[in-house]
Amino acid sequence: MPKKIEIKNLDLFYGQFQALKSVNMAVDGNNIVGLIGPSGCGKSTLLRSINRMNDLIEGVKIRGQVLLEGIDIYSSKLEIYELRKRIGMVFQRPNPFPLSVYDNVSFGLRVEKFKDKKKTAAIVEKSLKAAWLWDELKDKLHKSALSLPLYQQQRLCIARLLAVEPEVILMDEPCSALDPIATMKIEELMLDLKKDYHIVIVTHNMQQASRVSDVCGYMLLGEMVEFGRTADIFTNPKDKRTQDYITGRYG
C-alpha cells in the first residue's frame, strides 16, 4: 500500500531562485502533519506544490516527485482538476467567494456539474455541520459570505472543501488572521477532522504545531532540516538547527 502522499527529492525554482532544495516528506495515517520554519523558508511553496497551485505562477520549475498514492501528480496520469478535488486547500486569508453562504459550500458540486438539488442541500448541511457552522449559519444560508466575521469565513472555507470530500486538506497558516479563541476553535475542528482526512498545516506558531500535529517538519532556507514525530522534534531534535529554532535562538 503506497503512502497517501510522498515527496521525493523535490526541487522548486522561481526563475533562478531555488525555493525548495531536495525536500523529502510523507503524509500517511491519521496524522496531522505540521510544517514549521522561519518566514520565507519555503513552507507555503512546499504546500502549494502538493496540489499544483504553483503551476499558476509563471516561471516555476519543478524537479523530483510528489506521489499521491504512488502516482506522480506532475505526470499526465493524474488530471490537475482531479488532483485539486482530491487535495483541497485552506488559505492564509479566508477567501470565501462573493456569493451566498450556500453557493460557497455548493461551489465544488457545481464545478463537478452535480445537478441533484436535494442532495446538494443535504451535502451543504452536512459540510456546514462538519465545520461546526450549521447552528450559527443555518438561518443565514442566503446571506453573502463576505458579510460574515473572519472566523466564520475561515470555517466556511473549510466547509466548502469538505463538500467535495477531499482526501487531503492543506492548510496554509489558517489561523494567522484569527484571534486566539477562533484559533482554538479551528484547532479543535482539525483534531475532529483528522479522523476522516489527512491534514497538512503550515504554521508560524510553534505552540500550534505542538498542539495539533502528530508529525512535524522543520524547514530552513528551502531545506527540510528534520522531519519526524512532533514529540521528538520538540523534545529531542536531532539537528542542531532545529534545536536552535525550537529553543528560540532563531527566527
Binding site: F91, N95, F107, R160
Partner: peptide
C-alpha cells in the same frame, strides 16, 4: 482579488468555470 481565483482553482475548477 486573486484569492478568489485561487480558491476556485483549489476546488478543481477549470479556468472557464
Amino acid at each position: 482579488p486573486n484569492s478568489y481565483r485561487e480558491g476556485a482553482f483549489a476546488l478543481g475548477a477549470t479556468h472557464w468555470q
